[in-house]
């Protein structure tokens, strides 16, 4: 438990409150640091800095601002830890809550902005243009219709997601 042996400065007292306000966030207080999540995690196997147990510990103690860290974004959201957690903390869901709190503060890794550029504008990850529809027709597949952009705008108007259009800051 290296985190307990080091000296950390408390940096973020209200982080835990913010996490608990997100869906599934309350469960963070049940964590007793057994490490089943890290032991189950395929990402942790290859990236030791990605450690769900340690991220949760730092968030609970408020000893390091996990919102400034890239690590929560390394979760593949495979949910294996959620299945195995003996305290039903649902670590992947906690990490999703942490990412949402970070996003509220405008802290979104560029890759996550890029993949959402099209989702914001046209409603989908990839633009199915005339060329793609031509390839589809060639395979006997029906054309994919584009979605009314005005409907997408209305759907997300007033949400935090919509703010990404202005560079991700509130």
């Amino acid at each position: 438990m290296e985190v307990l042996q080091r000296t950390y400065r408390k940096v973020s007292g209200d982080l835990i409150k913010k996490i608990k306000a997100e869906p599934g966030g309350e469960a963070i207080s049940r964590c007793y640091q057994c490490g089943t999540c890290a032991a189950s995690c395929i990402v942790h196997t290859y990236r030791k800095d990605f450690n769900p147990r340690l991220i949760i510990r730092k968030a609970v103690l408020g000893v390091e601002n996990v919102l400034d860290s890239i690590e929560p974004w390394y979760c593949a959201v495979c949910y294996l830890c959620n299945e195995r957690c003996p305290r039903d903390v649902k670590p992947a869901t906690i990490l999703m809550a942490i990412k949402n709190v970070a996003a509220k503060e405008g802290k979104i890794p560029p890759a996550f902005k890029v993949i959402n550029e099209n989702v914001l504008e046209i409603g989908r990850l990839f633009d199915i243009d005339e060329f793609t529809n031509f390839l589809r027709e060639d395979l006997g597949l029906p054309a994919i219709e584009s979605i009314d952009r005005e409907e997408i705008n209305k759907l997300i108007s007033g949400t935090r997601f919509e703010k990404l259009k202005e560079g991700g800051k509130r």
Binding site: M96, G123, L125, I147, R160, F161
Partner: peptide, 15 residues
């Protein structure tokens, strides 16, 4: 249909 929503989840769970 639009994206199912999976790409938006880490940024804005409600959206």
């Amino acid at each position: 249909f639009t994206c199912c929503g999976i790409n938006v989840e880490p940024i804005d769970e409600f959206a």
